[in-house]
Design a protein around this nucleic acid. Structure first.
Lengths: 218, 218
DNA sequence: CCAAATCTTAACCATTTCTTAACTGAAACG
DNA sequence: CGTTTCAGTTAAGAAATGGTTAAGATTTGG
C-alpha cells in the first residue's frame, strides 16, 4: 500500500484530495504547512508527495529543493509558465494546475509510483541497525540473520523505542507475519534474539518488564 | 548526449520540435509513421520518445503498449480526459496537449530523462549479464538460453540487486509475462534458473531467504 | 495439425523455523 | 521465608518452506 503525503493548507481542497486517494486505497498522511511537511517527510517517508506551492511557513519551492528521492507532484493555481518550468527543473516530477480533474491526478500519481521501489529506510538504536530486507540485523557492523518472526519482533521494539510493549500488543503487531504465536512461543523467540545479539554485544538489548512486556534497554 | 525520437507525421510540427531539441543539444531521430517508429525504436534505442497519437500505420496507442522501458511523452491535440488518462495508464509518462509551450516541453523532457537516469541500471551482476533480447543470459561469456518466464525472473532480481524480493512481489512483477504462476511454479522456475547458471558457474546465484523471498547472492 | 518447447502440478525429501513443554531461576507478596 | 507467578533456557517434535524431479497440460512454431 503506497503512502502519499498531501501538503496543502486549504482545508477543503485537502479533504477533497484525501478522500479521493483513500477511495483508491492509498495511505494518506497530511501536512498543512511547510514546516510540518518537512517533519512528516522525515517521519513517514512517503512514496509520493502532492504539494501546494503557497504555504504558510516554508514555501513549496524550498521543499522541492530539500527533497531528493521522493517524487513530488506540484498542484498549483499558479499557471505562469515560468513557475511551471522552474519547479519542474528544480526537482518536481509533474505540475498540475488547479482546478484539476480527479482522473488525471490519479493517472499521474500512478505514472510516478510505477516502477518506484520503496526507499530503503533503516531502523536503528545504539549499536543496532535493522535493514529493510526482512532478515538482517546489524550489531555494530556485524550481520545477523534473523527469521521472519524474530525480525518482526525486533522491528516493533525499534519502532517503539523508549516504550514498553505489552506481550499481547506485541503478539498483535506481529500477527500478520506469524499467526499462531502465543506468550510461551514469544519468550522463546525473544530468548533466541537475545542470544543472537549477545554474540556481538555485551549489552542485553531486550529487557523484560516484569508482568507487563518488553522494551529495549536504555 | 541524449537521443530523442520524434514520432510525428505533420512535417511542420516535426521540424519545429526537431529544431528546438537540436538547439538544446539533444540528438534527434525521426519517424513519420507508426511502423517506421517501431523500426527506429529497435534500431536506435532512444532515451526518450515524443509521440503524436494520430499516425499513419500503427497508431500511437499501439506503440505505447509495445514499448516497455523508454519514457514516452505524448504530444496530442486530443484534449479529452479519457484519452489523457488512458494513455498515461497504458504506459506513457506524460501527456502534453497541443499547442504547447516550448519551455514546458523542454522542462518535462528533462524531468523524464532525469527519472530514467536514476532508474536505469545495467542488467548485470558479477559474471551475469542479461541481454536485451528477452531470452539470453551471459555467464562470463557463455550464452544461456532462457525461457520468457526465467528471463522475467532474473531480470527482476537484477533490477533489485542487493535487495530481497518477496515471492508475492516477484509474482506480481512477472505477472505481465507469465500470468498463472504461483509460489510452487515459481520455485520450479528458480530451480531451473539455478541449474542453468550452475553449468557455467560455481556460484549459486539465486539465494532464497527463508520464509520471505529471493535475492542474488552477495 | 503435429512436434517441440514451456509451464504447471504434485509428490518426495531435506532443511529451517516454530511451537510445545519441561525445567530452572528470579521477582512479588503475604 | 515460603509460595506463587512470571521469565529464561533448552530440547524435541511438529509444521512450514525450499529444492528437485517427473509427468501431464498448455502453448508455440513450423
Amino acid at each position: 500500500m503506497k503512502k502519499i503525503l498531501i501538503i496543502e493548507d486549504d482545508q477543503s481542497i485537502h479533504d477533497l484530495i484525501k478522500e479521493l486517494l483513500i477511495e483508491e486505497n492509498y495511505q494518506v498522511v497530511d501536512a498543512f504547512s511547510g514546516t510540518e511537511a518537512i517533519y512528516m517527510i522525515q517521519k513517514e517517508s512517503p512514496d509520493l508527495i502532492l504539494l501546494d506551492l503557497m504555504l504558510p511557513g516554508l514555501n513549496g519551492e524550498e521543499i522541492i529543493k530539500q527533497v531528493n528521492d521522493i517524487p513530488i507532484i506540484v498542484l498549483s493555481a499558479k499557471i505562469s509558465m515560468k513557475d511551471k518550468v522552474e519547479n519542474l527543473l528544480n526537482g518536481a516530477v509533474d505540475y498540475i494546475t488547479k482546478p484539476f480533474c480527479n482522473e488525471e491526478l490519479l493517472a499521474r500519481i500512478k505514472v510516478h509510483l510505477r516502477n518506484r521501489k520503496k526507499k530503503n529506510q533503516e531502523l536503528s538504536y545504539k549499536e543496532l541497525t535493522l535493514l529493510n530486507d526482512n532478515c538482517t540485523l546489524l550489531v555494530s557492523e556485524n550481520k545477523i540473520k534473523l527469521t521472519k518472526t524474530e525480525y518482526a519482533i525486533i522491528k516493533q521494539l525499534l519502532l517503539n523505542k523508549n516504550q514498553v510493549i505489552s506481550k499481547n500488543e506485541l503478539l498483535e503487531l506481529i500477527s500478520e507475519t506469524t499467526e499462531d504465536c502465543d506468550e510461551n512461543s514469544l519468550k522463546v523467540h525473544i530468548s533466541h534474539l537475545n542470544k543472537k545479539i549477545s554474540e556481538y554485544s555485551s549489552l542485553k538489548y531486550i529487557e523484560s518488564v516484569w508482568g507487563i512486556g518488553y522494551k529495549l534497554k536504555e
